[in-house]
Design a protein around this nucleic acid. Structure first.
Length: 187
DNA sequence: GGAACGATCTGC
DNA sequence: CAGATCGTTCCC
């Protein structure tokens, strides 16, 4: 069980995104395996950074390996991992986790609703990721951390268009672990 | 200053 | 399928 090195995260978002599949996202005692992600690049009309840097998206223009947490629809938080070098704004949205550890706590935070973490806002709620984690370094193993337990990314991830956007709707930058290959335990 | 719109989720 | 609910962005 080792931290994901920053060098793995710095690169073209649609290339890095599938590499995050099967990595672990941890916060305190709660751990989930990343099973669905989406890539967002600066030259991408669907990206928050498409029109340049603003106070909200500033973290995406910072160094790779930091969490970009944004508030949306007046009630939800979503989390991304920054994948671009400083000065460029790109990130990978974490869309779904398979719960691994701390499931009882995740269930309680979700108000006993199931599933626990199969959406970008649900996984933030289950792991108690919020605005206080915007900018957090997931490679340093402090609060929210990105870990590798030796489970490699899938050889052939499912690929398709991104969900819930209104621009660049056909760009196939959504990546999933195929059903049947999802592991709910740790190595 | 104001209006429109979300990288969503839930319950009907 | 519509409502919740409010920060961000953009236009005047």
């Amino acid at each position: 069980m080792v931290p994901v090195p920053r060098s793995l995260l710095e690169g073209d978002a649609p290339v890095v995104a599938p590499l995050l599949l099967n990595k672990l996202l941890a916060h305190g005692a709660c751990v989930g395996r990343i099973v669905e992600v989406e890539a967002y690049r600066q030259d991408d009309p669907a990206s928050h950074t498409f029109r340049g840097m603003t106070p909200r998206n500033a973290v995406m223009f910072g160094p790779p390996g930091h969490l970009y947490v944004y508030f949306t629809y007046g009630m939800h938080y979503c989390a991304n991992v920054v994948t671009s070098p400083e000065g460029i704004g790109a990130a990978v949205l974490l869309r779904a986790l398979e719960p691994v550890d701390g499931i009882e706590l995740m269930r309680a935070r979700r108000g006993d609703r199931v599933p626990l973490s199969d959406g970008p806002a649900k996984l933030c709620q289950a792991l108690a990721i919020g605005p206080e984690h915007n900018g957090a370094d997931v490679c340093l193993g402090r609060q929210v951390r990105l870990l590798d337990d030796g489970m490699p990314p899938p050889d052939e991830p499912l690929v398709g268009p991104r969900i819930g956007i209104s621009r660049a709707v056909d760009v196939p930058w959504r990546f999933r672990v195929p059903p049947g290959q999802i592991r709910h335990d740790r190595r």
